[in-house]
Amino acid sequence: MYRTQLLVEFVAIVAVICLFSTVIIGRSRLSILAEEFRPRSREFAPYFGVLLVVLALNSVLRDSAQEVSRIIGLNITNTIYSIEGEFVAVVQSFETEALTTYFSAVYMYGYAFLLVFPLLAYAALSERETLKRLVGAYSFNYFIGLILYIIFMAYGPRNFNDVVFTNLLYQTDAQYQMITTEVNDPANVFPSLHTSLSATVAIFAYKTREEYPYWLAIATVLAVSVIISTMYLGIHWATDVVFGIVLAGVCVYLADRYIGED
């Protein structure tokens, strides 16, 4: 099946990028991680368990949530449009073939790498709290995101007006739509989870800048690229992005406040 083939390809590419990036983690940390793999994974398991539950909830409820949203949700597309107007079209006016390739790649692979790599990097840290908080922050993102999706309905720029706002994803988009149903749901663009999760990772990268200085640089560049790509590709409004960043802040705060010991 073509879809399975794409999925395998996608996972393989992200895995290879992660593998090369282990240079950032350093040999000594990796060997300690290998030694302590069992006790550490036992300690992290509940946090990952919660994340998996939230993800499962997300995928199970998404369809019915959209249904509920259609009935009780506030359609804020027009409000968003009246606030920001054609800002996204301005972002898109910088279109070049190279930029489109770059942002499409970042939107798919960069984003996946951004989310997966810190799990590995933080698992290798001697203190355990960062990983717990990061996984917790992911869970908050998905959970609050789901609730916001139910309350608000908003169509993305390219579905709202595909003449003013062009869909620049083309082939990448097609491949992406086939391996994930997330983008398929055009009534759920507020807020941008791509933005909030990327920003969450960037904030954590800042907190761990002492341990991983290079990761801060990489994560910042990637997160900013992902955030711009959501608008450049016509998927999200600037408003979605702003609220995505706010959501990231809230989730990091919640994770710091309620997860971990110090």
Binding site: Y2, L169, Y170, Q171, D173, A174, Q177, M178, N184
Partner: peptide
């Protein structure tokens, strides 16, 4: 059943 004409074209292009 796909989400957009873009995806439909991708399936056609890939031979599926």
């Amino acid at each position: 059943s796909v989400g957009s004409d873009t995806v439909a074209m991708e399936l056609l292009r890939s031979g599926e």
